[in-house]
Simulated assay, not measured.
Amino acid sequence: LLYPWRTLSTEDNLNFLKSYQPRKKEVKHLRILLHGPVGAGKSSFINSVESVLRGIVTDRAETDATSGEQLHPKESPYSIVFNDIMGLENNADNGVHVEDIKLALRGHVREGYKFNPYGPLTENNPGYNSNPSLDDKVHVLVCVVPVDSVSLLDDKVVQKLREVRLAASDLGIPQLAILTKVDEACPEVRSNIHNLHKSKYLKGQVEKFSVTVGIPIKSIFLVKNYESEINTSDDISRPILTALKQMTVSLLRQTVFPQAVKCLYQCFSTS
């Protein structure tokens, strides 16, 4: 493409995130849950966000591309918490159960719980939170998928993604998507990150993913995670910061608020 199909904001997203604070005392952080297929780059994205916010490349989130057995709560220096959940798989006996993700959305999964691929969390399990607070509940849901896997997603995985999306919609939880590994999927981006939004292939993958899962194009973001780099770069950080800012403001952009979401709206309004 001669011109980028999306231009990144020139606003100071970092200053916005620094000034962002929940207004209710009982809500300490905006809780963002990452979910998606195994090996999608969820933990790598958390590390990348941490790197951008700290200004140095970090590797704090434990990564396990095979199982992702831990629920990783990672607090940044800002008022945001990411939760990384075990990946989805097409086999019923592998990966996280959809019912466990639904429980996590409602705050019933305690931090540190190890997900069991052979059965969902039950109320008599010590990892079950029977009385979740507003701070325990998920406020924003983010689906993470490698951009070159969009056309290869198994039908069963797509069905699970749609089921999770429907559950989040019923709870009034805003949803976004991150398409990762853009440099591996597109040679033009590998040679120059400035081609990120000029690539016809990447634009086509965004459109295809939107149709497949049902997330609007405006809520789907292309990012390159920090992986082999030893220093942060504005070119890599800018798309990550743009996506992160949209996560923080997405709740405020909801046009229809169930009663519970109205409360969240009041909690997370910025001054």
Rank of each mutant, 00 (worst) to 15 (best):
A168D: 07
C186A: 08
G127T: 09
Q70L: 07
V52T: 11
N91V: 04
L176E: 00
L196N: 10
Y20G: 01
H139S: 10
E111C: 10
V211G: 01
T122M: 09
R23M: 11
R54G: 01
S44F: 01
F115T: 13
E62R: 14
E111K: 14
I230N: 11
V213C: 04
H72P: 01
A40N: 07
S271I: 09
S228T: 10
L121K: 05
P146Y: 00
G127P: 05
A65R: 15
S199G: 06
A243V: 04
K181E: 06
L33F: 02
S233L: 09
Y201K: 12
D235I: 04
H108Y: 06
Y128M: 05
R6L: 15
I220P: 12
V249A: 03
S269I: 08
Y201C: 02
V147C: 12
T10A: 13
L30M: 12
S237I: 00
I85S: 09
S169Y: 12
S151W: 02
S210G: 12
R6K: 14
K160H: 14
N124R: 08
E26N: 15
T180L: 08
T255Y: 04
R110K: 14
Q175F: 01
N15M: 03
E123H: 04
Y78S: 04
N13L: 15
V164E: 01
V49I: 13
T270F: 07
L179I: 10
Y265L: 09
E188W: 02
R253P: 01
H194L: 06
C267W: 02
S130W: 03
N125S: 15
P146R: 05
N195D: 01
L88E: 07
W5I: 09
T10F: 01
I217L: 10
Q259V: 01
L264H: 13
F16W: 07
Y265C: 05
T255C: 10
H35S: 06
I46R: 09
P146C: 01
A168N: 06
Q254K: 11
K208R: 14
D12I: 02
A61G: 02
E207S: 14
D64P: 15
N129R: 13
N116E: 03
I240P: 11
V213R: 05
F209Y: 14
V164C: 06
G36C: 01
L53R: 07
K262M: 15
T66D: 04
L71G: 09
S9M: 02
H97G: 11
T270I: 09
T122D: 03
L252Y: 11
S133R: 05
P126V: 06
V150Q: 04
A65D: 14
P117Y: 03
D100A: 12
S210F: 10
T242N: 13
V189W: 12
S250G: 09
A243C: 04
S79L: 00
L134K: 05
N90L: 09
Q70G: 09
S9Y: 02
I85C: 03
K114R: 14
L196V: 06
V96F: 05
Q254Y: 02
K160V: 10
L88T: 07
G95M: 11
T63K: 10
C186W: 01
H72Y: 02
S228K: 10
K42I: 00
Q70V: 08
E227R: 06
K18W: 10
Y118I: 05
Y128P: 10
Y226D: 05
